[in-house]
Design a protein around this nucleic acid. Structure first.
Lengths: 132, 132, 132, 132
DNA sequence: GTGGTCTAGACCACT
DNA sequence: GTGGTCTAGACCACA
């Protein structure tokens, strides 16, 4: 898995980690039951603080994306990912609103917007069937 | 204009202001050339500090959504809003990615996703005065 | 004389007036002894406040560029403009420093800089000999 | 680095800071990648408020002269400074115009002007460590 | 310890 | 009355 962390970004590093790992799962580069690197090794690989990796892992656990076991370390949730319930869709819509408002002000049509969404979606599903 | 600010949110107040105003423009509740409330009056209305409003107004200026004049106060950019160029679309795609990755993991299909996007989009275009 | 005032600029309007009139003198579109428009008419022409024009005229008087008489109104200093003494050159150098520092950081060579200065200088002297 | 701030000047303190730091870069007393003092320490050193320093640092970031990192603080942009493109040269010419107009009115010749520019330029390049 | 955010309150420049 | 600047002091997130 290739996590590219931008230390200059204003997005907190732990957030970048969480996003990167969720994206890895979406791309099926990370499969259910698969083990993630240990806190120490990932922190060393990325040159960041242990606490930062730890915080990311615990957030992922809290969201239902990983399990943290004493023996195995951190593994991708083997059974079921959290569902796309109404609460999630509401949250998604709320996060989408400012992005879409900006796009509308700049004159993007609905078709253009859907093209962008579609491209992002397809990009993540492209590598999926073959797995990695 | 109705800006509902959540003081408890982890989203900074000035960001909520920026988003709310951009959404107001997208909904055409705020029209080009229209004056926004003065920093003092908006701050008083919302029960927040004038510096917080000031920061939001300056961010909007920086992004090309408003002009700040000496005496006249702050007005919605009367001429042209910033274009939806490639740089913007790239940024949009980058911001969309973590949202869509989360949705994919939760099993949302492309159709479901487009339904959510479409609903958000239509909602903002529906309320616009004058319609399309 | 064509004074183009930018109401959106962050440069104060009275400063734009002062600069514009001095540039008119440099271009010899305004000649020594020539009368400037009355405060009222210039303010009306430009759609700005009387006080603003007044402030500009008094600053010009203070710098030795105009005389303000009760009868004739405001006229370009007919005799001698202020000299380019050491004090002026010091002030000029001090104002030049941040501009040149910025240019140096951006990699402009001395020749490029002199080309820009020269172009600005020549532009103002171009219309000079023929007068207007 | 020696920043001499004039608290009585009509030039805002944060502008003096921005100019001083850019001049430090031009003189190569501040090198790419080098860390600037923290907002708190610089504010304490200069006897000014940390918000004033903060504003200066953010302006420098906006202009591409520094990076602001989460933990590391503020560092001089390590890669490339903004280019001297046409937009910059236009801006430079616009800022130069009132200065040169004043000088022309006072009878300075082109040669005298170039002497002043040249002196300012050379002064900044003379002190640079490493020389050219 | 770093910057990010927010508050409260002051004085000034501009129009 | 508008925004611009500056101060003083507080709490929080990040690493």
């Amino acid at each position: 898995m290739m996590l590219d962390i931008d230390l200059q970004s204003e997005t907190p590093i732990y957030t970048q980690l969480v996003n990167g790992i969720i994206e890895g799962i979406a791309r099926r580069q990370l499969l259910p039951g698969e083990a993630l690197p240990s806190v120490r090794s990932l922190a060393a690989d990325l040159g960041i603080n242990l606490h930062t990796v730890n915080k990311a892992y615990h957030l992922l656990k809290q969201e239902g994306y990983v399990q943290i076991n004493r023996k195995q370390g951190v593994v991708i949730e083997p059974d079921a990912f959290p569902p796309a319930d109404e609460a999630f869709k509401d949250r998604l819509a709320r996060q989408l609103r400012p992005l879409l408002a900006d796009a509308i002000c700049r004159g993007m049509t609905k078709a253009e917007l859907e093209a962008v969404c579609s491209a992002v979606y397809d990009d993540m599903r492209a590598n999926e069937q073959g797995g990695v």
